[in-house]
Design a protein around this nucleic acid. Structure first.
Lengths: 193, 193, 193, 193
DNA sequence: GATGAATGAGCCTTCATTCAT
DNA sequence: AATGAATGAAGGCTCATTCAT
């Protein structure tokens, strides 16, 4: 009887190893050999489960972004639809969630962002994610502001969030989640008054 | 005597070719062979002038950041010291200057940002630049606000600028400089009132 | 499962190819590409098994010297401890053993000797071997002569052996093992009377 | 008026630089660029004066061997033709002459010896030199011994000399000229009694 | 399902040589 | 006479992928 559910074991194992290796040596240094060593398996396994290195990177990127998405979704679920500000802040907080603050996630996220400029598949995944953040924010803001203004504010908030991430990824101190939320909250409050 | 003044010709020529290639295929695809082909010279010349690929990349990064710095400096020179808001907006505009808006610059800038997480030399160059932006903004803001608040606002503006860059680098439409300036200006005005 | 026991096949195969190529074109001409072609494998395999060209050269040198050592050891085993002269001549004969007389061995040996002046790893291997010859000879000679004289004679014999090798490596006729042994034997006899 | 006698200045200057570089980094590491840097001239000059790197190496080898030859010749000139033993010892002493004992000479000599196995031009130069040593010795020995025996002894002495050189080139202590001469002298005396 | 031996294209770099000045 | 800019072949090495076991 063959082992059941190996895919369910191997795939997360390899995706996690990929993030660790990217954290260690960057996307450019993340070779198949390094990743499989980190995961404790052979190199061939990557082609077996992901059809090649690119498939693994793609899956890793999807995972990073999916996790971010589900954190935001969970936070939103707890807040009634009419508490616009609270919902917006939940989205922001979701983006600075503790799990996301790990260096592993920040570096992987930025590495993929840079890479996606020259890779159609990664580009599409990245676009979906970038648009979703603006979209979530716009939906809330449209409840209290005209469409155009809602979109404008949403895009500014999105830029602020990503900018804090970006600078935090390169700062020796990393990101301070509380401070980050505070920066966005203050912008929002002044904007809505 | 060999041809004189070649260094002054070759170095910018190669740096420019490097940015073009990074724009075309990304930093990870920017091979010495591709760069020298784009510049119309032999591969060996890169080692002759830059001591290797890494030296060329380093020089390219310095060039990108130096140009950004000199644009800002020129803009500031035209504005009296006491016109705080105007000076801040000049810094912002400098960061969204037309030359910088070329895809070539945006992609190179972001590629280096990602790479510098795993390269000590690039890291140092990047840090100097990241700190300089905050420093310029803080100097102005301290004229009208307490130190702590000045720093806080400066960091938020810096994050906003970089966030707009970051998102613009991946957006099919690129960056709209006027809109970008407007976003920052509005934040600033609401913050200072 | 991959093919088993390949290391035991590939490593001697590559070491042998290395000696052949050094015999053909010298150490300076012995490129990875030439060696792998001679062995009938791809270039990558050398890194796989030896971690790089230097590892292969090191292993080759060790092999040459280990074989010499084991020939001498085998010859000595057959002769009782008290037959000093016979044991010394066995050491000498071991050094002019037929297998060692192949051009392949002589050239490899000399090439490594020259190279080891500028390579710490090869230097150490070479020193161990050079000292072992003197040491073997000294052990025997001390049975019948005072320490200082034993060492002196041992060093002279060692120089004579290596000198014959050296000159033979460059002579069109190569080395004549019988004549070589005779030269050393005569020196020894006159010295001990 | 052009500078006169530049060839007479440049050629020894470059040959000397070549020996120094070989001493520093070995023959395999002795690049044209390193040699010209050591000599304080441009790389092109080597092709100008020697027609290429190989011409320079050839000239360097000739110089090393010519100097050795002239030392021996000078020593022999002082000794009457009938003092056979003294003349032989003069040849030996010439080979262990102080100038020759410099690391620079020993390493260059051995490097060329190894290289000459795979280079027809160097081979010929080396052969002439190797034969000349035996020839000089044989001429003297034939005055007091039958031809065959004279040749046999001459070859043994030559092997002993070269063996001491060889082992000295790799010994941390180098060669002790007095001890070296003593080793050969003792062999000779016992052989002639 | 899993291994790791094997491949060979592609990378960066080094180098002897050429040549305009 | 002398320079050093420029070339491009060749070097060793890395790497994603394939495949027999």
């Amino acid at each position: 009887m063959p082992k059941l559910g190996m895919p369910e074991i191997r795939r997360p194992q390899l995706i996690n190893a990929t993030m660790s290796v990217i954290d260690d040596v960057g996307l450019s240094g993340a070779s198949v050999s390094l990743i499989s060593k980190k995961a404790g398996v052979s190199t061939g396994i990557i082609n077996h489960y992901f059809g090649g290195k690119h498939g693994l990177l793609e899956a890793t990127m999807r995972t990073v972004l999916r996790q971010l998405g589900s954190i935001v979704k969970n936070k939103l679920r707890e807040i009634p639809d009419d508490q616009v500000c609270a919902r917006i802040l939940a989205i922001v907080e979701g983006n600075f969630d503790r799990q996301q603050m790990e260096s592993k996630y920040a570096k992987t996220w930025l590495a993929f962002w840079a890479q996606s400029m020259h890779d159609p598949v990664l580009y599409r995944i990245q676009r979906v994610n970038a648009c979703r953040l603006v979209s979530h924010l716009t939906i809330e803001l449209k409840k209290i502001r005209p469409h155009a203004e809602a979109k404008y504010i949403a895009e500014t908030i999105a830029a602020l969030i990503d900018g804090i991430w970006l600078r935090g990824a390169l700062s020796p101190n990393g990101i301070n989640p509380e401070l980050a939320c505070q920066q966005v909250r203050q912008y929002l409050e002044k904007q809505l008054n």
